[in-house]
């Protein structure tokens, strides 16, 4: 439950997940921002005007999935790392998922990684398609994940390797 552990419920998620028809058309953002906090970099960053925040900056973002082309700029800009892009048109059995990632070591393109759900539990295995490093250090990982877990996967399992 969001108020107890930050994990959104099925109801919370259904309100922000674009309809299946849109998911199958091509890449689109899923904005998992549920709380009214003073914050607007997503609306500021979106070049298509798909994310707006009329009124004060504490409002939740308003998302128009038809204006969104899944470019993923919002994924790297969101300070809460709460935005993901999913593309169900990627392949027959796989969706492309773009997630923000701020750990090292970074995985490599072509690598197979274990993927985790919102509670950090292993959800399955995915292939890293691209590691898109950014100047602001929020890397965007492009993962090919099985379609049946694409809406649950939100992280990859880290290799513990940052110590001297």
């Amino acid at each position: 439950m969001l108020t107890k552990d930050g994990i959104p419920s099925v109801e919370d998620l259904s309100a922000v997940t674009p309809p299946t028809k849109r998911l199958n058309q091509g890449p689109v953002a899923v904005i998992e921002c549920f709380q009214e906090i003073p914050c607007n970099p997503c609306a500021d960053a979106c070049p298509s005007g798909a994310i707006t925040m009329p009124g004060n900056i504490s409002a939740r973002p308003i998302f128009d999935e038809n204006k969104c082309n899944g470019c993923g700029i919002c994924v790297t800009r969101c300070p809460g790392l709460a935005i993901f892009v999913v593309d169900f048109s990627y392949a027959a059995n796989e969706a492309m998922l773009k997630i923000p990632y701020e750990f090292c070591p970074l995985p490599e393109s072509g690598e197979e990684v274990q993927v985790l759900d919102r509670a950090g539990k292993t959800a399955g295995v995915a292939r890293v398609i691209r590691v898109q490093q950014q100047a602001n250090k929020t890397t965007v990982l492009w993962l090919a994940v099985p379609k049946d877990i694409a809406l649950d996967v939100r992280n990859i399992r880290r290799k513990m390797g940052a110590m001297s």
């Binding site: 701020e102 750990f103 090292c104 070591p105 250090k137 890397t139 940052a162 110590m163 001297s164």
Partner: peptide, 9 residues
């Protein structure tokens, strides 16, 4: 122990 590599710093 010192941090060898860090994703941000």
């Amino acid at each position: 122990m010192r941090i060898a590599s860090h994703p941000i710093l």
